[in-house]
Each structure stands twice: as structure tokens, then as C-alpha cells.
Amino acid sequence: MLNLNNVSITFNEGTPDQKNALQRINLDLQKGEFVTVIGSNGAGKSTLMNVISGNLSPDVGDVFIDDKKVTFLPEYKRSTMIGRVFQDPMAGTAPSMTIEENLAMAFSRNKKRRLKRGVTKKRKDFFQEYLTTLNLGLEDRLTAKVGLLSGGERQALSLLMATFTEPNILLLDEHTAALDPSRAELIIQITEDVVKKFGLTTLMVTHNMQQALDLGSRLIMMDKGQIILDINGDKKRELTIEDLLQEFKRIRGEQFESDRAVLG
């Protein structure tokens, strides 16, 4: 489904600021796999997401989606296949437009946009039905401007917008980081539900180790632009936070540095 072949990215090459954000990354995702991604700040997780989405193109290496080489396909073309939710709740929606208009735009993601009405009666019913699954009462506020929603409500909406067209790949980059614990919990719940419902191939970045262990079928750990740990199946199920920290120490010969990561 998704293949990364020897992908490397260096920022500010040849300056004192040089950063090897990704170093020879190889990654193969099967259809329906749900991968959680952990790693300290600056490990390259967001860069990895951006390379997959087409927001960045790799210096060397290739990206394949469904065996099709997409390395140089621009972001807007690739996004017919990719659903994304960003860390910033402001980033995933258009604030001055209404809930139904935002949903209509997401609905057009994998289709050609035409000169036909975006919000039709039929679509409205469909949106309403979907929003009901969120249990946030958004189904009664279809014509409210999205700018009026709380961060959690927006993130739930973004999640719905990213998933309801059943993308080939779903990218979640710390999409609960800006929310309070109970809202974060809710968003995680919704994430689990939709991923399961559509069997979406998913990459989810999180700083919450427990979350990374509880969710998904596979876990990868990144450090300094490399994937240093890749665990799936039964082994992942038995994994504990303690194991992860031990493992990091064994591989890197140092303490896991991000304290944010140990929290939760």
C-alpha cells in the first residue's frame, strides 16, 4: 500500500544548521495496517508525514502508493489518496466557512471539482448522519461557521473530513496534542472507530507512549531521522513503556530525552 524506499532529506545542507531530518528511511505498510509513530522532538516524524503527503519531496529515494511512484506528484494531486489531520486544530478546517461547506469540500477530495452546487440536500442528509456518529451535537449546527467551534470540535470535524471519503492512507500528526485530556480521549476513540470501520491504512504520530502501545497493530520509533525500532503483531501487544525505554537505551546507549514522551 505505502512504500518508502531509501528516503533521505537534509535541510540547510552545507551550513552550520544542517539537519539530516530523514536518513535512508525504508518503510512498507500493508493495506489496513495501523502504525503508531513515536520519537523525541526533532526526530523527523513530521518530516516523514510531509514526505508521504507530498508537502516535501525527498532529496533521494522514492515514495510509492499502491505501487505507483508518487515521489514527484504535487501535494494537491496526491491528496486525492491521502487524508490528513494536523496537530493545530486551526489547520484542518476553513474557519470563515460553515460546517456543511467544510464537509462538502472534503467530500470533493477524491473527485473532480465541478461547477455544481457543493452543498446539496442529499449531501446535507449524508453529512448530518455522519456528524451524528461524533456525538457532539454538530449535526444540528450545519450552517454554523467553523471558526466558532472549540478546538476539540474542530479536530473531530477534521478527522471526519479526512476519513469519510475512505482515503488510501490516513496521516495523523499529533492530532490530539492541542486538546485537554478528556477531549483527546474522545478524539482517540473516534480515530479508533473510523480506522476500524473503513479499514484505513494509518500512520499516527503521538507523544503519548501509552497511546502508541494501546492503539494500532504496529509501532515504530524514530530518532535522529532514522527508524530505530519497528514492532508489530504479538510482540507489540505485550510491549510496555518500560520495554520501550529499555530498548531505546540499548540501541542508542543513552536515556530517552523527551520528557514529554514519558508523560501519560
Binding site: E75, Y76, S79, G92, M105, S108, R109, R113
Partner: peptide, 9 residues
């Protein structure tokens, strides 16, 4: 950024 991630040029 959002509308680009929704495949609009």
C-alpha cells in the same frame, strides 16, 4: 494548507 490537503490546486 487545508484546501491543498483536500486535493485542490
Amino acid at each position: 494548507k487545508m484546501i491543498r490537503s483536500l486535493s485542490a490546486n
